[in-house]
Write a protein that binds this DNA or RNA. Structure first.
Length: 247
DNA sequence: CGTATATGGATAC
DNA sequence: TATCCCTATACGT
C-alpha cells in the first residue's frame, strides 16, 4: 500500500481536516497512550510529508512511518483494538494502524531526517540534479538505487518496477549507466505518475492496462507475451520482462 | 488454526 | 547480508 504518493495524500487530507483547531488524540491500542495524552486538545499546526515519512506538528512533532503494513483509516466508527493513534476533530477521525514508526521527534531529528532523504518528486523543493549526481555515484544496480531513499525519496517496489519497464531498463543495469537525458525523462515521468497517484490514492501508470501496472505481480508481458521474471534486486522482488527490458 | 507474504527500513553483523 | 519490527490478509491444513 504505502509508497510516497499515499503518504502525501494522507498528509494533505489530514492537514485539511485536522489542522487549525484542537484535536482529540488517543491511543486505543495503548502503545502511544502517554504521548497521545500529551497531545490531546492541542492544535495541529501542519502535516508535512517527505518521501514515505510524515511529520505532525503539534508544537511537539510526531514522526510517522507506515512501513509495509501501516495504514491510516478515515473513520467515524468505534476504534478497532489495534489503533495506535486516533486523531479526531469535529466529525472527522483518522486512525493509525500498524505503523513502523510513531514517535515524538525534535526539530533536530527532523533536520537530520530531511538531510538524509533524497529528492522527493512530490515536493516543490525537490532537487533532481542532486539526485542525478547521487545516482551516478551509486555503486548499486538501478533497480536498487531507485529504492534508495537517500537518492530519490518516496519510490517503492511497485513504482520502481513499473518505471524501469516503461523505460526498457533491466533493473540490474548499473545506476551509473543512466545518462543525464534518460534521468531527466525518468524524473519527469515520476513527477507525473506520482502526482496522479496522489489524486487517485493508488498507483496510476497511464498507458498500462487499466492504467494500473505493466509488470508488478503480472504473469506475462502485455506487450510481447514473454513470461515476467521475478528476481531479487535491492532486497526486494523485482518483476522484469526479459525481452522489453535490456541490460 | 497455523504460516507466508507485503507497495519499508533500521540495525546488527 | 541477515534479522527484526509493525499488523493485516491470503491461503493451506
Amino acid at each position: 500500500m504505502p509508497e510516497g504518493h499515499l503518504i502525501h495524500a494522507y498528509a494533505r487530507a489530514q492537514g485539511r481536516e485536522l489542522a487549525g483547531g484542537p484535536v482529540a488524540a488517543s491511543s486505543p491500542q495503548g502503545r502511544f497512550a502517554r504521548e497521545a495524552a500529551e497531545l490531546d486538545g492541542r492544535t495541529l499546526r501542519r502535516v508535512e510529508a517527505y518521501g514515505k515519512h510524515a511529520l505532525y506538528d503539534f508544537g511537539p512533532l510526531v514522526h510517522v512511518h507506515l512501513g509495509m503494513a501501516g495504514v491510516w483509516l478515515r473513520s467515524v466508527g468505534d476504534p478497532r483494538p489495534s489503533v495506535r493513534l486516533r486523531l479526531s476533530r469535529g466529525e472527522v477521525t483518522w486512525d493509525l494502524i500498524a505503523p513502523n514508526r510513531c514517535e515524538f521527534y525534535t526539530d533536530e531529528r527532523r533536520e537530520a531526517l530531511f538531510a538524509r532523504l533524497g529528492a522527493d518528486p512530490l515536493r516543490r523543493d525537490a532537487d533532481p540534479d542532486a539526485a542525478f549526481v547521487r545516482l551516478q555515484r551509486s555503486p548499486l544496480p538501478i533497480g536498487a538505487a531507485l529504492l534508495d531513499q537517500r537518492i530519490i525519496a518516496g519510490i517503492g517496489n511497485v513504482i520502481r518496477n513499473e518505471l524501469l519497464y516503461e523505460f526498457g531498463i533491466d533493473p540490474e543495469r548499473p545506476a551509473s549507466s543512466i545518462d543525464a537525458e534518460t534521468f531527466e525523462r525518468m524524473w519527469h515521468r515520476l513527477v507525473a505518475v506520482m502526482r496522479a497517484s496522489v489524486r487517485r490514492r493508488r498507483i496510476v501508470f497511464s498507458g498500462a492496462p487499466r492504467d494500473r501496472r505493466y509488470v508488478y505481480k503480472e504473469q506475462d508481458c502485455h506487450r510481447c507475451g514473454s513470461p515476467i521474471q521475478q528476481r531479487e534486486v535491492g532486497n526486494r522482488r523485482a518483476y522484469v520482462c526479459p525481452t522489453c527490458q535490456t541490460r
